[in-house]
């Protein structure tokens, strides 16, 4: 991972968040939630700021970040792809669809392509079981996705580089 320089104004904002929680180490998880919504993810540099502000060790902060699956240290892609692995989607072949995405994007679940365009995740049920298997890209829902459709879905967004 390359070094990331955090924007000074964002760091100031993060420090404000910590202050809002009285720089209380007991509020670490709440602070991290706020930090993740601020930055989209929790890079080491953000964790370092939080550790300094709350006066806890950076190892402790990383321990918490790496324990809870909600927290991520990897920035999401411009187009975050999520494959529903809920029961209905799963029985209708979601796993094969997911594997096709992994193969074509050459990343694992939870990762982001090096160009930062796509990230891949699985989720449980988006409430559209009638369209199973379901893939969401950002806010958009793709229904009844077959393995053969995966390539064109990726192309659709790849070409959409405004």
């Amino acid at each position: 991972m390359a070094h990331i320089k955090l924007a000074q104004n964002k760091v100031a904002e993060l420090k404000e968040v910590c202050k809002k929680f009285n720089n209380d180490k007991g509020e670490l998880i709440n602070v991290l939630h706020a930090a993740q919504s601020l930055f989209g993810y929790l890079p080491a540099e953000v964790q370092e700021v939080v550790a300094n502000e709350l006066n806890v060790s950076i190892a402790h902060v990383h321990g918490v970040v790496s324990f809870y699956s909600f927290f991520t240290m990897i920035p999401k892609g411009k187009y975050p792809i999520s494959i529903c692995m809920g029961t209905a989607c799963y029985v209708r072949g979601a796993e094969k669809v997911l594997n096709e995405f992994k193969k074509l994007l050459d990343i694992k679940v939870g990762e982001t392509t090096p160009d930062g365009v796509f990230s891949l995740n699985s989720l449980r049920c988006v409430g559209a079981c009638g369209l199973a298997p379901v893939v969401t890209v950002g806010e958009k829902v793709h229904g009844r996705v077959a393995v053969e459709d995966v390539k064109s879905i990726i192309e659709e967004y790849k070409n959409d580089k405004e």
């Binding site: 806890v56 060790s57 950076i58 190892a59 402790h60 990383h62 321990g63 790496s66 324990f67």
Partner: peptide, 9 residues
């Protein structure tokens, strides 16, 4: 010293 912590799950 705060160097070591349990990481991941």
């Amino acid at each position: 010293v705060g160097t070591l912590s349990a990481l991941y799950r």
